[in-house]
Structure formats: C-alpha cells, structure tokens
Write a protein that binds this DNA or RNA. Structure first.
Lengths: 344, 344
DNA sequence: GTGAAAGCGCTAACAC
DNA sequence: GTGTTAGCGCTTTCAC
C-alpha cells in the first residue's frame, strides 16, 4: 500500500468537474443544488478527501483548538477538571491541548505568551499562584481566557471560583457539631490562591466558633501533595505532643488530609476515635482510604464544565460582559469524621 | 488598551527595510549578515511580532502538535502516561493534544481517521480494545503512530508493551512464597487486551504452581473500575462462601484490587490476615489504602516515556524499521500481602 | 547574502 | 447557484 498524497479541493473539483468554490460550499453545507452536492460528495468520497485543518485555520483565522493549562496533573482534581473541560469543548467541535505547567508562575506566563502564536482559540487556565506579571498578562490575553480560581475583581477576565471559605465553614461546622473543639489545619502553601483563602477562612471561622485558638494548630505544607502533607503532619505531631493533641484536622486538600491520616495511624492514633480528619476537593482518593475521607467538594467537575461554557460563550461573543461565577461547596461525610461517642 | 492586529512578516520587513525572505531567514536562524540580524530583530521586537503557527504549519506541512489518546482518564495509569508523554514531547517543542476516547473502539477509530485532517504530526495511542477495523487502520495510519499496548506482530506499528504475563507471574510467585495457595483473580473484561493477557497468564502460572484450580476463583469485572470491581468482588464472595474462600486475590489492576479490599473488609475479612490482595499498575492509589496495596508495576511512566521517544524517532525518520519494546514489571510489596504467620 | 515571487490548501468576496 | 480569484502568513526556491 503506497502512500498517496492527500487530495486537495482542487483535485476534488477537477474530478467532480466543478469549481473549487463549489466544492468548498458543498463541504461546508452552504446552499448548493442537489446535483452539485451529489457530484462533489461523490468525488470527495472517491478520492478519500479530508480538508486540511491548518489551511482552513489560516484562512478562517480560527484553529478549533483550545488549551487547558493546570499546575499539577498529579492532583486528581485537575484531572477531573480536564475531563469536564474536554467533554464540553469536544462536543462543540474543539480539540483540546493540555499543558501541565508547573506551579512556577514563570512557566504559566510563558504559556500565556506562547498563545500569541495563535495555535489555539482560547484558554482555560487553572493557576495556583498569581503574580503581578501574570495578572498583568491577563488584562490583555492573546486569546480569550477563563480562569478557574479566584482572580482580583480588577482583572477583567471570566472566571469560575471555588468557595473555599464556604467550604472551610462547612467542614468546621461539621466538626464542631460532632463535638470537636481542637481543630488543626494542615494547609498548603499560603502564597497560593487556595492556600491563602483557606487559611484566612479557617482563622475566621475558628474564631467565630471559639475553637482552635492555638497557633501551633496551624501548619503549612510546602505543597499540596502527599509527601508535603506527611512532613507537615509530622511537624504538627511534634508540636502537639500529649495533651495538646488536636481532636480533628482539616486538610488543605484531600492529599494533605490523607497524608495526615497516614501519619496519625502510624503513630497509633485512631481515626476518627482520637482525631477526625476532613479533606477538601472530594476526590476519588478519599473513597479508597480506611476510614474513607470526609471531604468538602469544591465542585471541580462543575468548575471545569462551567469554565468551558464560559469560554465557549466568550468565543461566540468577544464583547460580552465579564462573568464571574462561584461554585458552592458541599460536604460529603464519610468515616474519617464519625462522631466520637454515641452523640450526634 | 486597544487590540492591535498581530503584525506579520510583511510589516516586520517594511519596518526593517528589508525583504520578507530576510525576515524569515533571520527568524529561523539561517545564515544572514550581522547587520541584517540586528535590523530584523529590532523591528520584530518593536512590533511585538510572533510568527503565526498555522501559517507556518501550512507551509512546512508540519503542525508541531502531537496527540495522546487514551481510553479512560479516570484511571491514574493513563494520567501517569500522559504526563510522561507530555514531558518528553514538550521538551522537543511539540504541543500535546489529549483525546480521552472511551473504550469504545468506534471512537478510537473515529479519532484515528480524524487525524487525516492533518492537525497533528503524530499519535500516541493507548487503546484497551483492539478490533479488526482498528488494526486495519493501524496498517496505514494518517500520521506516525505508536501504540502503548500489545498489538499483533503482523501490524507494522511501533509499540511499547507491558509484560502482563511477567507481572502476573511476579504476583503469583510472591503470593505462593508467602504461603497462599488459593488465589482468586478478579480480572477486567477479557475482551480487552490487558484483560485477556492477564487472564491467560494467570491460568498458566496457577497451573504451573499447582494452585487455584477452581474456576470459581476467576471472576471478570465489566470494566477496570472501582464500581465494576465491587460488583465482581461481591460475586466472588457469593461463590466462595465459607470454606471455599480464597486466601489471596489478584486484581486485574489497582482499581479492581482496591475494590476487592473494600468489599472484603466490609464483609469482615482481615487483610492480609485472612486474604492477601495484590494489584497491578502500582498507582498512587495503592499507597493511600490501609493496608497499602502490594502491586505489580507495569512501568506506566516508562511506557509513556518510551512511547514518546519512539514517536519522536519515527518522526525524524519515517522509514526506520518498526520497533517493539517491552517494559519489564516490578513488584512492590506493601501491607496487603504480608505473610499470614511469622513465616517468610 | 539578499530579494522577488511562488505557493502550502483553504474560504469568501465578487462577478456572472 | 456557480466560477474566478484574491488572499490568510509563512517558507523557500531561484536569480542576482
């Protein structure tokens, strides 16, 4: 089987005995006579014609490609978002490119700038850190962009936000109701957007409930990962030897919470008997641990879906007003936070 | 800040007072005089010029894009592969598109055919089912393709294979050595490539070791997922009430193995005391369960890396001989398969 | 070393 | 309704 050169509109036109314009019209569903349609389709089928996407893009100034950029494919949350974004954009005929930039803002910036090469029509960006440069770039992005995550109101970009504060409130309220009074926070880096939001919300809600006043109950992991979580958990235990132990821990995300569970168990603590653990993001990971992990869903799938929809809307109308939508959190109670005694 | 039209080579040329050919040469690092280089670069910088990727692609007949297609982003194994593929292809200047086709071979076929639109220079494909049509298509793919997974030798396509049989052997040998004699297999669908390979290897190795003769110890889940695994595990228990219980279970992948662990524990069995559990793929999931999951690594990261490299090599030389490489499995022993008694 | 010009494959005026 | 033709923005012969 030899390799045939791919046929072009010109050859289809010749075979059909018509003009290239007619071929293009038929292929794009523009009004044409039935006999014309038939002739063109016959020739196209015969030759196995496939339009060249690049040539088309150059002409119509549109690539039918979108980019999704996230900071860490290792985190299941981003996989969920990616899948949601892919599902809705694909259904609208777009191809999706993924770019797993690291959490380094420089890389994100490079990505944003690279979009000036016009290889994609739009971008869904889920950054974890926001620098001035990045915000500046978001003021006039190379292509329509929607950010998953919170950006300052001064930045005129569509974005879909998680309600971290509400999520923290949900988690703390639940722990409080189930009798926990000494709740620790194993947070991610506070120089990240979610890290700082969750940290502040925790302080506020803890104060409101009148619990967890000790600053030693706040630890900050270097990253939102299992490894960093272990390290942070060990630090927490070192600080809170004996009587100062927390009776609950809130993790900045599921990975941190799971790491905390592991360390606690290794140290002989019972979960949820001695200490309850709650995570955030409600990833599948939380369903496979024992006990399973109570977690606050920040709606990652929904955020992905919404982001994709905002982007598609923006693509349809570049001048529409900026939209910022917030997804509400929900709490899924599982084994890791069952009440201590028989109380409810 | 108004939206400027993106400058083109023509404008750069005019600003620099040179021809477009010279601009192109300088920008592509072809021999040019120092003063020329300077003039062009100055103009390009001044105008904020960025080459248009589509126009370039049309001219050079190359997109600098690659596609990675997998059957299920929900499975961490594919995420690992994707990340590996992205890392190596990106370092060579390619952008990566992902396409999460379902396990439906029709969708895979549609994807393969869509590549005739020339929107990508190559494809890394990790299909789970192989149909005749699909194999036929792989005989003359639209773009250079490498398959992650086993394809018949008659299909002239680069591919990187897992050694499922070796992996099963490793797992069974380990279980045998630790005193297990009645090993069940909770496999994925046997009409999939990995499912059939693992099923056959299990039969062979079990026979060799003289264990697990009962066919009731073989169950087949509908899918390689947690949900399907639970269902299969329940069926297994229904079959093996009381004295017929297995003392070990091998899962067709980690998800199935974890589902088995969950069901066993819910039914009051101790792991690894009553029954040992071993998974395949060695995903992160296995590290968060309790006990943690002994698992056979099929080298998903390495497979991704190798696949990407094979593809890049193929892109450099279309006519090079087909290569088929196999990645060797390794066993990571964790808590779920600790020996029953004090024996080793 | 540099410039003029052709053309990658397609769509969209514009004329008929 | 259909054909002719001019480009989209770039690279690359080919002369000079």
């Amino acid at each position: 089987v030899s390799v045939e050169a791919r046929p072009t509109v010109v050859e289809v036109a010749r075979h059909a005995g018509v003009s290239v314009a007619s071929v293009s019209r038929v292929l794009n569903g523009l009004p044409s006579s039935p006999t014309m349609v038939e002739k063109v389709l016959a020739a196209a089928t015969l030759l196995g014609y496939r339009p060249n996407a690049m040539a088309r893009s150059l002409k119509v100034q549109r690539t039918d490609q979108l980019t999704f950029a996230m900071s860490d494919v290792g985190n299941p949350v981003y996989v969920t978002m990616m899948r949601a974004v892919e599902r809705v954009t694909r259904s609208e005929g777009y191809r999706l490119m993924v770019s797993s930039v690291s959490s380094d803002p420089g890389e994100v910036l490079a990505l944003l700038r690279s979009l000036r090469h016009s290889y994609a029509d739009g971008l869904v960006l889920s950054p974890i850190r926001l620098t001035g440069e990045l915000l500046e770039e978001l003021h006039h992005p190379a292509v329509p962009t929607v950010v998953i995550g919170t950006v300052p109101a001064s930045v005129p970009v569509d974005n879909v936000r998680a309600n971290s504060a509400g999520g923290v409130r949900l988690a703390l309220a639940h722990l409080y109701e189930t009798g926990r009074r000494r709740v620790a926070l194993v947070n991610g880096p506070v120089d990240t957007v979610p890290g700082s939001a969750r940290g502040r919300a925790f302080d506020r809600q803890a104060a409101r409930l009148g619990v967890s006043r000790d600053l030693e109950l706040r630890v900050e992991a270097d990253d939102f990962t299992l490894a960093a979580g272990r390290k942070a958990a060990i630090e927490l235990l070192a600080r809170c030897a004996g009587s100062r132990m927390p009776d609950a821990v809130l993790g900045g995300n599921d990975l941190l919470a799971i790491a905390v569970m592991q360390v606690l168990r290794e140290e002989g603590y019972d979960i949820p008997g001695d200490v309850a653990v709650v995570g955030m993001d409600d990833t599948d990971l939380g369903t496979v641990t024992s006990p399973s992990l109570t977690s606050v869903s920040l709606g990652s799938e929904q955020r992905g879906t919404l982001a994709a929809q905002l982007l598609l809307d923006r693509l349809r109308d570049v001048d529409r007003p900026v939209r910022r939508v917030t997804v509400q959190p929900t709490l899924t109670i599982r084994g890791s936070s069952a009440p201590k005694a028989g109380r409810r």
